[in-house]
Nucleic acid binder design. Structure first.
Lengths: 111, 111
DNA sequence: TTCGATACCTGGAATATCTACCTATAAGGC
DNA sequence: GCCTTATAGGTAGATATTCCAGGTATCGAA
């Protein structure tokens, strides 16, 4: 039993990854860093969480990967959104907003 | 693959159940109805989701159950929060709020 | 007497996430 | 030269959650 397990992501991981690379393609390691920074260290993606997620998203045709050279001269796999991925991200964000509104109705009833 | 599966709960189920019975004890069937109504039918708990969750929460000492008679004269198992459950619920709500704030930072950066 | 609503439940599948591990290269300190 | 840290990729297995599909039983209404 995961007594003290801290469940942070709660199904938001795909959306966060897709959103992170929306402005410009990034490699996995940088995605984890960026999500950590922007969320003020709330989200700290482990590699065992991140990479399988990237592969899932690629298998579903939401991302595409391309080997390139980073600005520090190393090889890395850069991920970018496909058109399908962009549509999916928009739908995910709408779904997330509707979900959090529904949760808010439960948490703060009778406003 | 759950192509069109509507993923609604995303780890919020325990919190929603605990919150639903916070004001007054309820039986399982009524909990599902209440969560459905208050969320304007966004959440529609299946029984195969609800009852195992209730049992989990009871096993963890967050709820306690008691057979009583409903106002329609039927037997039903009424669940109420334990003191531990009440503390847990408060912590869950704080965690949920911090999480949604962190997600908001990702979704709407640099405001 | 048959049906829908109420009320309880279980079993099995699918999925996501976490922990723990692995490989390899580059940079910098000693 | 050697060691550590950061960078970059990955897999395997355990666990937990949720869903789907079924099951039991009672009650009231048509």
């Amino acid at each position: 039993m995961g007594e003290e397990k801290i469940e942070l992501l709660k199904g938001t991981l795909d959306m966060l990854i897709l959103k992170a690379i929306e402005p410009l393609p990034m490699h996995g390691y940088a995605i984890a860093q960026r999500i950590g920074q922007v969320s003020r260290d709330f989200f700290q993606l482990q590699q065992g969480t991140l990479y399988p997620a990237l592969h899932r998203l690629e298998d579903r045709g939401l991302l595409k990967a391309e080997w390139r050279i980073t600005e520090t001269g190393r090889e890395a796999k850069f991920y970018s959104l496909t058109r399908k991925g962009r549509r999916y991200l928009e739908a995910e964000i709408r779904g997330w907003e509707r979900m959090t509104e529904a949760v808010a109705l439960i948490l703060r009833p009778s406003e």
